[in-house]
Design a protein around this nucleic acid. Structure first.
Length: 520
RNA sequence: CGCGGGGUGGAGCAGCCAGGUAGCUCGUCAGGCUCAUAACCUGAAGGUCACAAGUUCAAAUCUUGUCCCCGUAACCA
């Protein structure tokens, strides 16, 4: 079983293009694994607890639970709009999750991993954490990034993070916890040093924050939001579930094949806290998850921000250009792990040239000619020549390259391989000129061969496109009149997916060209 | 010397980890084709791969140094 997760989003506002990207990235991987014949469990969700939710609710003058519900809906709507195929849905206010978190806390408490102590120091309200001298700037002050800082003394519960850092360092160096891309690992190793000297405060006094999961052994406190949120990866995977629960079978899912996360939450949450938490709970090295850390979409070289007014709303984008174009662009124009520039013009250009003009047009011309000159039926044929062989060679090399790129999580590379194949087939059409062959009845066998090569190529393209653009792929298969293609797995793919005597359906553009610039 | 990322034809980027003819998309110029979504195909121009030194038979790729740019300042992916 391939267990894939995204980060769970913080619904104190509307989703932006970054949220959309992470979902699409993970969805493409999930669908690809399914295409490989693997069982997949794809989990995504929302992190509804935490002080910031409370503050946002106060600002808007609504009940925090109401706000959580309202904003959560925006995220589920986005999943629909993007055709995300998640199997599970994680909401941290779910009682099942709460029960699991409390069981884990109790276990850690009984195991001596937690202790209570009083701490006096400077507290950043915005960051919801106490500050140490390490956070002071060169002048000895706390910078503006911490917002309002006040001196505060309070008792809290701590997790003995420092007792696990030696193990973590070793685990990181030996790839027990895998991190992609590799260059991110250094950041983690540097961050471990800091964790060695500090334990993690995992509670917040109820008197000042009641919106959270109460500690089972101390009613005066609720759980720190990260400690709560990270556990979603196992709680919704069925860890410590009740017998009558409908959650999946944990032993089948765990460890997570990949936690797909953004670069901002790698350190410390996912690369320090999370492995140490699992280690403390009792998970072995073999049960450690892997991280796929993706980059950010910038806007014209600048960070996306509300103050700059350059936030890209994925819902508006889907409304304007459609699900296919958004999915295609997010998968196509970024190197997994790196940052990229979000550019609507690029979206138009790439989608129009590669999908509409390239693949869509290829399918359309192939079917039209098959319809017009062969009565829509691809009979068996004898003809073969060098041009046909070239197409089959390109077909074979795509079948080799595409899975390789996907295995490296290189979505862009996989799509480039697909586009390159499409170009080869279009070239094939130019050279063999089926529109001339049809004028000579004696060349009917050759014409059939050419059109079959074109349609066969479209059949393969439709299957490889499935993880990226499932709706478009289905439309292509509908026009090819070959619904059976959707049932095939990667290992089944070879030349000859369309049987002799295949009749095709009426062609209709699958990828309408995106028109002009959007009106903003 | 906090940490990290980056500097590649007009634009945007890949390639760098595992050195070996510099690649992709768009743009520009010229041509071809007409089955198709005014789409498709061919050819051309255009780069001292930031700079310098080093290692090597060979460096965009490895090492060292220098100069620039951008994050690390949540809106949080």
């Amino acid at each position: 079983m391939i267990f894939l997760t995204t980060a769970i989003d913080y619904p104190n506002g509307s989703p932006h293009i970054g949220h959309a990207y992470e979902k699409v990235l993970t969805d493409v991987l999930a669908r690809y694994h399914r295409l490989c014949g693997q069982k997949v469990y794809f989990l995504t969700g929302v992190d509804q607890h935490g002080q910031k939710m409370v503050r946002t609710a106060e600002e808007q003058g609504v009940n925090v639970a109401t706000l959580a519900k309202k904003n959560t809906k925006k995220f589920t709507k986005l999943l629909d709009a993007l055709s995300i195929s998640n199997d599970g849905w994680a909401e941290t206010i779910d009682p099942t999750h709460k029960a699991c978190v409390q069981k884990i806390l109790q276990h850690l408490h009984d195991d001596g991993q937690l202790y209570k102590k009083s701490y006096q120091g400077y507290y950043s309200i915005r960051q919801e954490q106490f500050l140490t001298d390490q956070e002071r700037d060169t002048d000895g002050n706390f910078g503006p990034e911490w917002g309002e800082v006040e001196e505060r003394k309070e008792e809290n519960w701590y997790f003995k993070l420092s007792e696990h850092t030696a193990w973590l360092r070793e685990a990181m160096q030996s790839n027990v916890v895998g991190i992609e891309p590799a260059f991110r690992k250094n950041e983690v190793l540097n961050a471990i040093e800091k964790a060695e000297s500090t334990d993690l405060c995992i509670s917040r006094p109820k008197e000042r924050l009641s919106w959270g999961i109460p500690l089972p052994f101390d009613e005066d406190f609720v759980t720190y939001v990260w400690f709560d949120a990270l556990i979603n990866y196992i709680s919704f995977a069925g860890y410590l579930k009740d017998d009558d629960s409908e959650l999946p079978n944990f032993e089948e899912l765990w460890p997570a094949h990949l936690h797909v996360i953004g670069k901002d939450i790698m350190v410390p949450a996912h690369s320090i806290y999370w492995p140490c938490m699992l280690h403390a709970i009792g998970f072995s090295d073999e049960q450690m998850p892997n991280l796929l850390v993706h980059g950010w979409w910038n806007i014209r070289g600048e960070k996306m921000s509300k103050s700059l007014g350059n936030i890209v709303d994925p819902m508006e984008l889907v409304d304007a250009v459609g699900t296919d174009a958004v999915r295609y662009y997010l998968a196509r124009d970024i190197v997994t792990g790196k940052d990229s520039d979000f550019d609507t013009e690029r979206l138009f250009v790439l989608f129009n040239s590669e999908m509409a003009n390239g693949l869509g047009n290829l399918l359309n011309r192939s079917l039209n000619m098959t319809k017009a000159s062969l009565d829509g039926k691809l009979e068996s044929y004898q003809h073969d020549d060098e041009e046909c062989q070239l197409v089959r060679k390109s077909h074979a090399s795509l079948l080799e390259n595409f899975p390789q790129k996907m295995a490296e999580h290189d979505l862009r590379g996989a799509l480039e391989a697909l586009v390159s194949f499409i170009t080869d087939v279009n070239t094939f059409a130019e050279r063999t000129k089926p529109w001339e062959l049809k004028k000579d009845e004696s060349k009917r066998d050759q014409l059939t061969a050419v059109l079959h090569h074109m349609c066969e190529s479209c059949a393969l393209a439709s299957i490889l496109l499935q993880p990226f653009l499932p709706d478009a792929a289905a439309k292509m298969q509908g026009q090819l009149n070959a619904a059976h293609l959707a049932e095939l797995q990667i290992k089944d793919l070879q030349w000859g997916l369309l049987p002799a005597g295949q009749t095709i359906n009426k062609p209709k553009p699958v990828f309408p060209r995106l028109q002009a610039q959007e009106t903003d």
